[in-house]
Every structure is written in structure tokens, then in C-alpha cells.
Amino acid sequence: MNGNEYRVKPGPEGLLPPAAACCGVVLSEKGQGLVEGALKSENDTLRVMARELLTRQNPTIFPGPLVLWAWREGVADKAASVLELAHEIPGVRIIPMPDYRPIYPKIDPEAVINPCHPNLTIWHNKIEVCVFIGVHCHFANITLKMIRAGTNCYTITLCHEAGHEDSMASLPFADANQVRALTETIRQLKREGLRPRYADTPGILLTAAQEALSQGLVWQPAPVAQ
């Protein structure tokens, strides 16, 4: 192997960055995490995640189908833990990934993220830190690679399975307990004196699309600036 020198840093990584797994990055075991490709304890991983979420621009949670749809027992609780997490990140947005189809006619990045067009869809590339949760691993991996190729977004994955080499910080086998542990770590960092970047705008922000919907308006996406 090439050893573990390869670092999974935020992009843009260029035309076609390699899959981190092919550069020697190995998934962690339960109880550990990956930070930029290196094995870390779960606690250290959570602290990195918490710091990035509090300090980077436009923190966004991308919940996938496995938490958006209450399809089996435990999902509602996990979904609740995601909302608790969101409430601790001032200025956070929640943009869902409700399905994986290549959406026609075009993506509205204020309404959804979609694995078939992610770097066009992470809100005009203004999101500099995001959390994937409840996305099937195959689609998460594809999306993560594309985000790293084309944007400077710091990607965090709370994976219900084995984790993701292509995200900058990844925790495997994450259920509601791990999500709550991240929330707790965020609280802890705040107690330690870290002032969140959006401390003045607490709570979850709605995207313009969500705002319009909540007011019963039919919202049209703004034309993409050339």
C-alpha cells in the first residue's frame, strides 16, 4: 500500500480526484472515526466535526431517505436526534436528499440535493460544511467524490454502516446515540468558549424555497447566474 499519507482535504480537488479508498485510506472500526483519511478516536472525530460545523460558512445537513422517511422503527428517533443536532448549530440549513433519481428538468438546489448532480446542487457552492446522514452508502460515496472534486465544502458523514473514506470526517455505525454525542460535543465546545460563526442567528434557517413553501407560495428557482 501507499501507506496512509493520502489526506482527504476539502476540495476543489480538480478534474477527477481519486477515490480515497484507492489511495490507501482504510475505513475505521466501530468506536473510531476517520478525519481527513486518518484513524481517530470517536471522541476526537466528534470534536473535529463539531468545530467545523460551528465555524464554517453555511453549515448544512443533508438528510437522506433513511432518515427522511419513517419507514421502520427507530427512524423517527434518529430523525429527532438530527433535529436536535440542527438546533445546536446556529445558522444551519436542512436540505433533503429524498431520492436518488436523476431529476428532470433540473435541480433546484434550494430544495434538494441529488447524487446525480451534487456539485450543482449544493446551494450554488456556498456551503462550506455539510453533514450526510441517512444516505445509502453507494450514493453518499458518489456524491462525496463529486463535492470534493468541485467545491470547497467540508463533508461530514454520520454513516449507519461502515463509513466513508471520501468525506473529511466520518463516523461509522452511527445511530441516534452518535448523533446525540455530536450534539453534546457541540454544546461542550460552546461551553469551552467557542463562539459559533452564526451565533447571532440561532436556529434553523429555511432556504428561500422552503420559506416560500411554508408560506403557501409557489416558488420558482432563480435563474442560475452565468
Partner: peptide, 20 residues
């Protein structure tokens, strides 16, 4: 049909076509 039940609290983040 459970696969079409939005988790509590998430409806307001869903796109219009899914709400519909």
C-alpha cells in the same frame, strides 16, 4: 406506505413535489 411517511419534523424541509 411507511416509505412515504415523512419523519416527524421534516415535512417543512421537503420539496414541494414530495409534500404533494
Amino acid at each position: 406506505l411507511r416509505t412515504l411517511q415523512v419523519s416527524p419534523g421534516f415535512m417543512r424541509f421537503m420539496p414541494k413535489e414530495y409534500q404533494d
